[in-house]
Nucleic acid binder design. Sequence first.
DNA 1: GGGGTGAGTGTTAGCGCTCACAAACGGCTC
DNA 2: GAGCCGTTTGTGAGCGCTAACACTCACCCC
Lengths: 335, 335
Amino acid sequence: MAIRGPAMTDVARLAGVSHQTVSRVLNKHPYVREQTRLRVEAAIVELGYRPNRAARALVTGRSQVIGVVAQNTTLYGPASLLAALEQVAAEAGFAVSVGSVRDLDHRSISAVVERHLMHGVAGIVVIAPVESAGAALERLPKEVPLVTVDGDPRGSVPLVTVDQAAGAREATRHLLDAGHRTVWHVSGPADWFDSAGRIQGWREALLAAGAEVPAPVPADWSAASGYRCGQMLARMPEVTAVFTANDHLALGVLRAMHEYGRRVPAEISVVGFDDVPEAAYFIPPLTTVRPGFAAVARASLDLLLTQIEGAAGGELRQTIAPILVARNSVAAPPG
Amino acid sequence: MAIRGPAMTDVARLAGVSHQTVSRVLNKHPYVREQTRLRVEAAIVELGYRPNRAARALVTGRSQVIGVVAQNTTLYGPASLLAALEQVAAEAGFAVSVGSVRDLDHRSISAVVERHLMHGVAGIVVIAPVESAGAALERLPKEVPLVTVDGDPRGSVPLVTVDQAAGAREATRHLLDAGHRTVWHVSGPADWFDSAGRIQGWREALLAAGAEVPAPVPADWSAASGYRCGQMLARMPEVTAVFTANDHLALGVLRAMHEYGRRVPAEISVVGFDDVPEAAYFIPPLTTVRPGFAAVARASLDLLLTQIEGAAGGELRQTIAPILVARNSVAAPPG
DNA sequence: GGGGTGAGTGTTAGCGCTCACAAACGGCTC
DNA sequence: GAGCCGTTTGTGAGCGCTAACACTCACCCC
């Protein structure tokens, strides 16, 4: 294994130039004669030459790899973000190395960051949607370019985030516009920034419409907890509209409503958040909010590359607006 | 940016030894006096020294990164596999670099493989569940250690795969045991090995029980197509049991049954495949087959590391048995 | 006492690349 | 024709590490 391929000098010899000229061709320097460039390129093709990144990284002191720290990568949201990041990074010539963490506490995060540093990443993207992660990041070594996604809005680390509040406002307004007096909210875990933002947007929309603001029903992100909350809401006749913090919660709520014989949307309207691919095939198809993963990925990488290239300036905060996807889980309230 | 940290010679100077001794400590060579080792380790901690992977990779000719080629990483299956791989790799001191492809044809795959090679990966895992990928892999350069997951059983490339047929047999037998005369199958795309294996297992179980074998209903993997197939099956009164090639198809079928007023499981039983986390919260909770992603990941990495280390021997084919997860979507047929 | 042995350490030579610098060349100005 | 520019190419050093080898001891055996 690990047979060494041809090196730059081999290409140089074949093309009848110095290794330095080959390097210049590879790095697209100006001041290489067209004819020389063609000769070098031909030699590269002929030998099947492939530049050695390790050697380049050694001398330049930076690699072409960015590390990502994420939790729960099997969930639709993180997985989508990861895929989008990978694609954007590839376009910029960077590879993406993932590091999953079980918990987003200081110890887990810095362990994975440390692993990334050992592997010599050029920069790190941390998907850090909870309080504990925010604190952990402040304590990280400053030597590495770092960007957080969905992180602490009050932190000092460069941040890209989906405008949770805007999405929640839209969802809530959509329900109010359908004629509901007020909207109940099944919220995500209290320590997630996403949860906080969605609660805030929901509350703002209600207040703006002069509607009553019921207490949010706390849950985690799972269909299981959505189901439990749904069981409660199903027994409350005054509930006609529910906005859940994500689609899986909505799924649980839908199942509970079904079991209690409360028809959706005829008796109760439901709106989710995330637009998972299956959302269109829930019973009934779910109206939800779609965050722009691709836009988030692009913004994150831009921010990171700016830091890697050493340019100090530019915005350190980017907000991506989500959009509402209307389906059949919303109708006018009964009566 | 990219401030160079302390190098091995700095550690050596502080510990009063040569850089080579530091290297020996780092690589756990024998023949280093305990006392010396402690002195070196103290110096490493004091300076916050971190070995430069690029330099090591340059001299040894191999990196500590493995590349993964996968399609559709936002789906539950691939995402789970990816996460499992990453964890197993981390334990072995390897980083995982993902490369998503839109299509599993020769061009896309070799482009991503090429990208991985440029970045100097030590080996590659290809998640290659379709015919076209199988062909593409045979044409890849042999110089790189390679393992396929869910790939072509007839190919020559080392392979780890879930025993699709065994899982399908179990699912089908489970339905037959519940008293159904026969079981209908909504199958995955024809060019997927997974589909073929599941069809085969389903057919075997029916034949073994002397049951009639209906024509499989072809679909893709989406809830959308499951829904369309479900609409058809719902109108066929003789259908009492359906085995779908994955859970999303089952979700679509469930929705169709619901719309046509056919109760599950009272009138029709349904079994899926994959055990996505939401499966327990479908209406009704879905009986399904759980493939062992962790086991697949572990086997793949073992196979890959064996190749990387140059050891030729060992099995080049590993099969992982899935298990049936019984929930409430299966009951005796009506009447 | 000469010559082995093995533990523990140091010296040297690259791995393949980029960077800084030098050099060669033609064309221009004065 | 001396001097200067801009273009095009080459030379040499060195990034931080490991592998190969050389060396120094202490210890043992005949």
